Computed example of a mutant assay.
Amino acid sequence: MSTGAIDSATDAGADATAIAAGIDDMYDAFLSADRARFDRHLHAEVTTWETHLPGPLRTRSELDAYRDGRDGSGARPELDRLAAEDKRIDVWGDTGLARYVLVAEPPGGPAQHSRVTDVLRRVGGDWLIVHHHSELLTGHG
């Protein structure tokens, strides 16, 4: 009689694996300068809160405007490595929560570590980030 619970746990495990793979693909896309692939992981109404941003960006269009200005000025970060480590992912139906440490290694510089929380929604079978919060950790690395 516990088949439903087992199926539900199996589904949540498969969903968590899919979310983890999506996060890894997103950061690989950043390293490859493939903005279109990166953006496939973001919901149109994604909120983006990061330590280095000029305030919370409340939609993808606000994020796009920020990135266009940054990239146009030549300030896009150059990194040798960008990886999500120590992932913890929970799934409840069509909602996912991912927490991890993002490690960014610039060429010839020390690695930076950020504590990240992503909230995701399943939309049309795809897991999309609806809220991204990243805080730079000081004194780490």
Score class of each variant (00 low, 15 high):
134 S>F: 02
9 A>W: 10
65 A>L: 08
121 R>K: 08
75 A>W: 01
77 P>K: 02
118 D>N: 13
34 D>C: 05
114 S>K: 00
81 R>P: 06
137 L>I: 07
22 G>S: 15
8 S>I: 01
16 A>S: 06
123 V>L: 09
37 R>I: 02
76 R>M: 12
88 R>D: 15
48 T>N: 11
65 A>P: 05
107 P>T: 04
5 A>N: 12
132 H>G: 01
53 L>W: 10
9 A>H: 07
21 A>V: 10
53 L>I: 06
20 A>D: 00
75 A>P: 04
64 D>M: 02
126 D>M: 03
133 H>F: 08
42 L>F: 13
77 P>E: 05
49 W>P: 01
53 L>A: 13
89 I>E: 00
8 S>F: 03
12 A>L: 02
125 G>M: 11
93 G>C: 08
28 D>F: 02
65 A>Q: 10
94 D>Q: 13
135 E>F: 03
91 V>R: 01
42 L>S: 02
69 G>N: 06
38 F>I: 01
19 I>S: 02
128 L>C: 07
44 A>K: 12
129 I>P: 06
77 P>F: 03
109 G>A: 15
23 I>P: 01
141 G>A: 15
132 H>M: 06
13 G>A: 11
48 T>V: 11
84 A>H: 03
115 R>N: 08
24 D>A: 04
79 L>I: 09
30 F>A: 08
136 L>Q: 06
27 Y>P: 06
88 R>F: 13
21 A>Y: 07
129 I>M: 15
2 S>Y: 13
125 G>T: 05
97 L>S: 08
11 D>S: 14
62 E>K: 03
141 G>E: 10
87 K>S: 09
116 V>A: 02
43 H>R: 03
103 V>A: 04
2 S>T: 14
110 P>D: 13
76 R>C: 08
137 L>M: 11
9 A>L: 14
8 S>A: 15
16 A>I: 00
7 D>Q: 13
130 V>A: 06
120 L>H: 04
124 G>I: 03
66 Y>P: 00
63 L>A: 11
63 L>D: 12
35 R>W: 07
96 G>S: 03
114 S>F: 08
14 A>N: 13
90 D>Y: 07
107 P>E: 05
48 T>W: 10
67 R>L: 14
4 G>S: 10
33 A>L: 11
102 L>S: 00
8 S>V: 07
41 H>M: 14
95 T>A: 13
109 G>H: 11
52 H>W: 09
132 H>I: 04
38 F>C: 06
59 T>H: 00
19 I>R: 00
99 R>N: 06
7 D>I: 10
111 A>I: 07
24 D>L: 00
95 T>S: 11
100 Y>P: 00
